[in-house]
Simulated scan of single mutants.
Amino acid sequence: MLMVTDLLGLLHRLELTPTATNVLSVMVDQQSPGGVVPLTQQEIADELKILPSVVSRGMALLVERGLVLRKGYRYRLHPVLAGYTSEAELQAAMARAASEGVPPILLPEYQTAPPKPGRSRLRVVG
């Protein structure tokens, strides 16, 4: 299956949780050509051996970032993450995405740098 891979270099900047990364991995692995994911959140949870509520939080982040497109209870991968059976199918999907106005993939933007884990500016006043 052919895939557009330019996004792989940006994955670290998407600041995905480990769960979201695992959910995305299962979705990429189980997708049909064109990025349709024939799995429910329950099936993804079963595959990862985690609770469906944990999958739901990971999925919400993937949808928020634009990596996964949701329509009702169905999911599909953003066209740049989807796999295709041929170069022609890939080009047609990119043209369709451009004409339909597929939402962009969103990198988190911070006004200030996010806090580093384990460091606090709070001080004990005695």
Rank of each mutant, 00 (worst) to 15 (best):
Ala95Lys: 13
Val63Asp: 03
Ala92Asp: 12
Asp29Cys: 07
Glu43Gln: 15
Gln31Met: 04
Leu61Lys: 12
Leu106Val: 14
Val102His: 03
Val4Met: 04
Val4Gly: 00
Pro115Gln: 07
Pro79Ala: 11
Leu11Phe: 14
Arg13Ser: 15
Met94Ser: 03
Pro52Met: 05
Ala92Tyr: 01
Pro103Trp: 00
Ala95Trp: 03
Leu107Met: 12
Arg13Leu: 14
Leu81Ala: 02
Ile44Gly: 01
Met27Arg: 01
Arg74Cys: 06
Val125His: 11
Leu8Gly: 12
Val4Ala: 06
Glu64Trp: 02
Lys49Gln: 09
Val102Cys: 13
Gly83Glu: 10
Leu10Met: 13
Pro104Met: 05
Ser56Ala: 13
Pro104Asn: 08
Ala93Phe: 03
Pro114Cys: 08
Pro18Asn: 07
Leu90Gly: 00
Asn22Ala: 15
Val36Ala: 11
Glu109Ala: 15
Glu64Gln: 12
Leu11Gln: 15
Glu87Pro: 00
Leu67Phe: 09
Ile44Asn: 00
Ala95Tyr: 04
Val28Tyr: 03
Leu62His: 00
Val28Trp: 01
Gly101Pro: 08
Leu106Gln: 14
Gly66Lys: 01
Asp46Leu: 08
Pro115Trp: 02
Leu90Thr: 01
Arg57His: 09
Glu109Val: 15
Leu90Val: 02
Ala45Leu: 04
Arg123Cys: 11
Pro108Trp: 10
Arg65Ala: 02
Val68Ile: 12
Gly34Ala: 05
Met94Ile: 13
Thr40Trp: 04
Ser53Met: 07
Ser25Pro: 01
Pro108Ile: 12
Met3Val: 14
Val80Arg: 00
Leu2His: 07
Thr85Cys: 10
Pro117Asn: 13
Glu100Asp: 15
Ser53Gln: 11
Ala20Asn: 03
Arg13Met: 14
Gln30Leu: 06
Gly101Cys: 08
Pro117Ala: 15
Tyr73Cys: 03
Met27Tyr: 01
Val124Gln: 13
Arg57Ile: 04
Leu11Asn: 09
Leu39Asn: 05
Glu15Cys: 14
Val23Tyr: 01
Leu8Glu: 14
Tyr84Trp: 08
Arg74Leu: 09
Leu10Pro: 00
Leu2Gly: 02
Leu7Gly: 06
Gly72Thr: 07
Gln30Lys: 10
Glu87Phe: 08
Leu2Thr: 07
Ala20Phe: 00
Ser99Gln: 14
Pro52Tyr: 02
Ala95Met: 09
Pro117His: 10
Glu64Ser: 13
Leu90His: 01
Thr85Pro: 01
Asp46Trp: 05
Met3Gln: 15
Ala98Ser: 15
Lys116Ser: 09
Ala20Leu: 04
Pro103Leu: 03
Gly83Gln: 11
Lys49Arg: 11
Ile105Lys: 02
Tyr73Lys: 08
Asp29Tyr: 09
Leu69His: 01
Gly83Leu: 02
